[in-house]
Design a binder for these strands. Structure first.
Lengths: 256, 256
DNA sequence: CGACTAGTTGAGGCCAGTCAATGTTGGTGG
DNA sequence: CCACCAACATTGACTGGCCTCAACTAGTCG
C-alpha cells in the first residue's frame, strides 16, 4: 500500500508553506486526532487494526465541494478527519434545508442506508478530509466485532435522536431560543474536541445557520446583534465569543 | 409451540367480553399480518424461526398508556403488531413535541440505543399490542443473520431519514403544505397496510397533529376546514376522505 | 478598481399564534 | 335510556414574531 503525503494543508486560506512533521500517509485510527469521538471509540488494539483495513482511503473535499449527492448509489460511510460539512435535504420543488453540520469524528453517509442511495447532499464548508468506509466491509467487520457493531448502531441512532431534537427545536422554539440552542451545541462540540467552548469561528454563513434553524438570514443576523446588545455574546462576522452561558442556557430552555 | 390466530380484538372501548378464538400465546412472525413491513422482511424460513425465539413476548398497551418513558433504561425494541403510537420528546422546560406516529409493523425504541436510555415517550393512541424484542438477543441474531442485520440498520437509518424530512417540513413549509404532507404520508402508510388510502380514521387529536407539524391545534382545525372548502378533502371529526390527490401533492411540494 | 459575496439594519406586511366563545362527541353513572 | 361532564373541535377577532423587500456596508478576489 502506497502511503501518500498526508497532512495536507487544510486550513482554508493559509497559502503559506506549512511544515508537516511526519508524512502520515495511510490513515490510522490509533493515531487519529478524533478517534475518541469516531467509530473506533472503545475498540481494542486488534479491532482497531482491522478497522484500519476497512478504511479504503481518504478523500479530500475542497470548500464548497460535495462528498456525495442525493441519488448517488450508497456504498460508503465517511468519517470526518478534518474539516466541517453540512448536509442539505432538497425538496422536489427546489427548496432546500440544511439538516446538519458535521465536524471531526462524526460520520456522514448514513442517510444512504435506507434506500441504498444517498438522500441528501453533503458539502464541505471548508477544505476537509474524510476516511472512506465501504459499508459492506464495515458490516463484515461489525459482524465479528460486537463493540464496533454497537458503535455503528449508536452512530445511526444518534442521527435519529438528533433529528428528534431538531424537531423539538423547529416545532416549538422561537427564533432566539433556536439560536441559543445552536450556539451551545457548537460550544459543546468544540469543547469535546479540545477547543475553546467560549470562543470559536463559525464555519457556516448566516444563511446556512438560518436554513438549519428554520429562519431567514436577516433574522439570524438581527438575533446576533440583539444577543450582543444584551451582553450574552460578542459577534464579529463569523467570530463568536460566548459571554454569558447561563443566560444562553436559560434561553435554550436549559437544553444546552 | 402453539400457534395463535392473531385476530385479537383490541378495539378501544369494547367492554364487552371479547371473544378471542385462540389464545395466541407466542407470536409468530410468519403468521403476523404486518411482517411485510416489519423487521422480518426478506428473511428466509429458518431465520424467521430464530427471530421468533428472540421475541420475548408481547405487551398490550391501553389507549393513553405508555410503552416506555424518557430515562428508562433501554433494553428492548418494540415491533407494533396492532395499534398506533406517538412518540413525544420533552424539553426540560416542560414543552413537548410529538416527534412521530407509528403504526403496525413499525419499530419503536431505537431512541434508546444512543444513551442506553429511552430519550422519548412512546404512548398508545389506541389499545395496541407490540412484540418485545430484547436488543441484546436481536443483536446476537443479527450477528449471525446478515439480512436481519441489514434490516436493523435500515430500520435505524429510516428514523434518521424521517427526521430529516421532518426538518425540511418544519423548517421550510407553510402550515397548509405541512398538513398536506402529513395526510399524504398517512395515506401511503395505510395503503401499504392494505387499507384504503382515500378514506381513513385519524387516530390522533388535532392537538397531536398540530404538535407534530409545529403548529397550534386551532391552525390545524382551520386548515381542515379550508381544505374541505376547497374540495380537496372531506373531514368529519377524525374521519378523513381525501378527494383530490393531485392537488394535495401539489400543495405538498410533490413530496407526497 | 469594479464585481461579487456576505452581513447588517430598517420599514412594513402577513401568516400563524393567542385568547375567547361556542359546538360536538364520547364515556360515565344515575 | 338519558343526563351530564370532560375532552375534543370549530370559528372569530386580534396580535405579534418573523418574513419580505430594500438600502447600505464591509471584505475578497480577479
Amino acid at each position: 500500500m502506497t502511503r501518500g503525503v498526508a497532512s495536507v494543508v487544510l486550513s482554508a486560506s493559509a497559502a503559506s508553506p506549512n511544515v508537516i512533521p511526519y508524512c502520515d500517509l495511510a490513515p490510522h485510527c490509533v493515531s487519529c486526532s478524533v478517534r475518541e469521538m469516531c467509530l473506533p471509540v472503545g475498540l481494542d488494539g486488534p479491532a482497531l487494526g482491522r478497522l484500519d483495513n476497512v478504511v479504503a482511503g481518504r478523500r479530500r473535499i475542497r470548500k464548497k465541494g460535495s462528498l456525495y449527492r442525493p441519488g448517488e448509489p450508497f456504498a460508503c460511510l465517511y468519517a470526518i478527519r478534518v474539516g466541517t460539512f453540512k448536509t442539505l435535504t432538497l425538496a422536489e420543488d427546489g427548496r432546500e434545508q440544511v439538516t446538519g453540520f458535521y465536524m471531526g469524528g462524526e460520520i456522514l453517509g448514513a442517510d444512504g442506508i435506507e434506500e441504498n442511495r444517498y438522500s441528501c447532499e453533503a458539502t464541505a464548508l471548508e477544505d476537509s478530509e474524510v476516511c472512506v468506509l465501504p459499508f459492506s466491509l464495515l458490516d463484515e467487520l461489525a459482524h465479528e466485532v460486537p463493540s464496533l457493531r454497537r458503535n455503528l448502531y449508536k452512530c445511526l441512532a444518534r442521527d435519529a435522536c438528533q433529528g428528534q431534537k431538531m424537531m423539538l427545536l423547529l416545532g416549538s422554539m422561537c427564533a432566539e431560543e433556536r439560536l441559543a440552542v445552536f450556539l451551545l451545541d457548537l460550544a459543546h462540540r468544540y469543547r469535546a474536541r479540545g477547543f475553546s467552548m467560549n470562543e470559536f469561528i463559525l464555519r457556516m454563513t448566516r444563511e446556512e445557520i438560518a436554513s438549519y434553524l428554520g429562519l431567514k438570514l436577516e433574522t439570524v443576523s438581527r438575533l446576533f446583534s440583539r444577543l450582543q446588545g444584551e451582553g450574552l455574546l460578542q459577534v464579529q462576522g463569523r467570530a463568536i465569543k460566548l459571554l454569558d452561558f447561563s443566560a444562553l442556557k436559560r434561553l435554550a430552555g436549559s437544553s444546552g
